[in-house]
């Protein structure tokens, strides 16, 4: 009986982590599903869907040697696979401004209230340490339409944060 797990690894970044970990998983007979690897600050982070006959604890033991060698934290959760059910975004929102506490909470708060279901969000801190800039990109579904999002974002814009809302019209052919 195969199970799906979400394997999370976090730690200091170094070249070859993904190759090491996925090699260990392959040798252990695991299948991989979707994955997201990204550097956040100087940190390596990956979330990886893994399908295996192993128990949660056995999967943890399988990746331990590769993870320990690089001082990575390992976390394994049992999940449902739910593959082949991608939800399509119909709007993209980009946000940037001088970094200050509360930007994300404010922006996502008004967007949620205006009917946005976020499917994808990533953000970065650019600029310099004395003048940081916060940059965020969101894709989602606007359940109440894009105009509702635009209206909800007015106060955010007045607060000096740049926001653009662009419909996504997916061309299928």
């Amino acid at each position: 009986m195969n199970h799906w797990y979400m394997l999370t690894l976090v730690g200091e970044d170094s070249p070859g982590i993904v190759a090491d970990v996925t090699h260990a998983l392959f040798e252990g007979g695991c299948n991989l599903g979707e994955a997201s690897m990204i550097r956040l600050g100087g940190n390596f982070t990956i979330m990886l869907m893994v399908q295996t006959r192993l128990s949660r604890i056995e999967l943890d033991e399988l990746v331990r040697p590769a993870a320990d060698a690089r001082h990575l934290l390992v976390h394994v959760d049992s999940i449902e696979g739910r593959l082949h059910q991608h939800a399509e975004p119909d709007v993209q929102i980009t946000v940037y401004g001088a970094d200050r506490a509360g930007i994300v909470a404010q922006v996502t708060g008004v967007l949620a209230a205006a009917g946005l279901n976020i499917l994808d969000l990533d953000s970065a801190v650019g600029g310099s340490s004395d003048k940081p800039i916060y940059i965020m990109s969101i894709e989602g579904q606007a359940a109440q339409g894009i105009e509702a999002l635009e209206q909800a974002l007015e106060p955010v814009r007045e607060g000096g944060i740049e926001v653009s809302v662009t419909p996504i019209d997916t061309m299928v052919g």
């Binding site: 991608h86 996504i168 997916t170 061309m171 052919g173």
Partner: peptide, 13 residues
């Protein structure tokens, strides 16, 4: 840039 999908590539854009 723009978003595309394809009848020959289901469930991915």
């Amino acid at each position: 840039p723009g978003r595309e999908g394809c009848l020959s590539v289901p469930d991915f854009t």
